[in-house]
Amino acid sequence: MLLLVLQEESEYTTADRVKEKMVDRATRTTLASIPLLRTKAGPRDKDAWVVRLKEEYQTLIKYVQNNKEADNDWFRLESNKEGTRWFGKCWHIHELLKYEFDVEFDIPVTYPATSPEIKLPELDGKTAKMYRGGRICLTDHFKPLWARNEPKFGIAHAMALGLGPWLAVEIPDLIEKGVVTYTQKTDS
């Protein structure tokens, strides 16, 4: 059993197991290889935030490297100098074609008590699995999982547990419905 809620095996209950089944096996394997963060600090915490931000970058770098090694590279992110605004690209391969989307989010003042709200602005209004402004609609399991694991979870975990599964479920559906169509994008 992988450490999802960072508790010992004996402390798991059936309810936990049921909830964890909602997170698929592949995601769990991925999750276990993303380092955990140490510092509980938000963007209003000045010096402590700089420490936290370094940890965020370290975990993200590790996560992207893991993805590359597993031949499952699926996003790039960067932030403003303060680390409060993040932006980049994410992509999904469907029938050998690469569908790429802009991704962005702000770090809320209450981070890491609350997770960032990941946005895919291009898809705003195209799917019901979104709140206004292109914020992806996470499952019921994401927030409890985040709450149980903050402040050890960071942006990399939000990507792995939030955006990753969302893309895997929603993009094939949107392609099938013809809402998302393939456009040739040149690598920059």
């Binding site: 450490l3 809620v5 960072l6 508790q7 010992e8 380092p35 955990l36 963060l37 140490r38 940890e55 370290q58 975990t59 590790k62 409890p144 709450a147 149980r148 694991n149 050890k152």
Partner: peptide
Amino acid sequence: DRPAPTANTGAEEV
């Protein structure tokens, strides 16, 4: 539910 503040954190950290 939330984990207790003393919850085991033996996992790998940055």
